[in-house]
Design a protein around this nucleic acid. Structure first.
Lengths: 202, 202
DNA sequence: AAATATTGCAAACATTTGTTCTATGTTTTT
DNA sequence: AAAAACATAGAACAAATGTTTGCAATATTT
């Protein structure tokens, strides 16, 4: 019986090779690095892995084995969102970023640069890029990006979402600030839920 | 003059092909899908893109083009680092992540999962993944990952780095905690400087 | 222990795919 | 308009790499 460990070692190798090089290994790469003596043996291993459904492989093609999950998703940076008083958030594409899909799953994601200190106690700081999953609804306690129109104040803001007495409350995570309960509740529009963030120290 | 658009179209195609298939296209794939008549032409495009630094390509290897224009670097997640009392940080590779290289430039980067609350006032929370640039030295005020050996306490920790009276001070960003000034100063070893972080909300 | 199946090897073979060469059309410069 | 530089094509070639075959070694079953 062929050892499961051996197969897993091969699978792991293919994965690592792909990560490090950006393209898959050949059977000869496997032989060299895993001390396999014959290309036929490596070839065999790959086919066993394929049978087990652990990888895909296009026949006759070179370097065409693939362990699913390239590992990154591309998401657009759409603009700035204010975390203090809501001001403006233009939906203009400022470029794409690749983020690890293992961490940030979701269908329709985008980034926003945070401006302000209103979420600082949730660890969201001025200048952070938040990863937002586009959706129209939210659950109690989730951090959301929302827009509303209350006379002078309007634009997008990032806050923790609550529903209290049938009214939507936008709660800043900053003890120096008060909850926002927009007068015009009908104007509140959830742009998405914050599922992660990235920060770059300068 | 060759149109910049054409080149970008090719670059985009390679990127998409890779995303969809898990491995890079061949020059013949390009010809078929981009209606290019000659493999030599496609070959030429690839070389131009390489010259412009928009992709990498290993010579003579099959399907060995790799786009880096998408702006991501692969970095390994090496383990856990404690932000409270320094405990342990195993250097075991737990997988690779793609992070945007535009944000996180640096030669030798790795990720560590943060455990503890000692840097919370710097916006680094329990569970965050910090992006570390491997280096042995640090400047005043930088956040570093450091190891030291002070009797029972040893292991890696993340702290703000200062030098005071010729001694290295590891300062937690948590007003409830005291500075660490390791007795055995000689044992202090900087593992790297924290240049960014990623967080995923659950 | 003999028979059988499994695994691994070495070498040959076949296909894919990168690369080069030369010719021809197309744009830019003189 | 001629010359020069450049872009693309088409075909041939060479190298990389997947695949097959037959055999030996090893493990498993009878």
């Amino acid at each position: 019986m062929i050892s499961q460990e051996k197969l897993m070692e091969v699978l792991d190798y293919i994965r690592r090779f792909n990560d490090e090089n950006g393209f898959p290994p050949t059977v000869r790469d496997m032989c060299r690095d895993l001390k396999i003596k014959s290309t036929a043996t490596a070839y065999d291993y790959v086919n066993r892995l394929k049978e087990k459904g652990l990888l895909e492989k296009a026949e006759n093609k070179k370097r065409a084995v693939v362990v699913r999950g390239n590992g990154s998703v591309r998401v657009p940076l759409l603009g700035v969102v204010n975390a203090g008083q809501p001001i403006l958030a233009v939906e203009q594409n400022e470029g794409y970023y690749s983020i690890p899909e293992a961490e940030f799953k979701g269908e329709d994601l985008f980034l926003l640069r945070v401006h302000g200190e209103s979420m600082i106690e949730a660890g969201i700081c001025d200048g952070d890029k938040i990863i937002v999953k586009r959706q129209q609804t939210a659950e109690n306690g989730e951090i959301v990006v929302a827009m509303f129109d209350d006379g002078t104040e309007n634009g997008a803001t990032v806050k923790r979402f609550f529903k209290k007495d049938g009214k939507i409350v936008l709660h800043p995570e900053n003890s120096a600030m008060d909850d926002i309960i927009p007068e015009n509740q009908a104007s509140i529009q959830i742009l998405g839920k914050v599922i992660g963030l990235m920060r770059s120290f300068r």
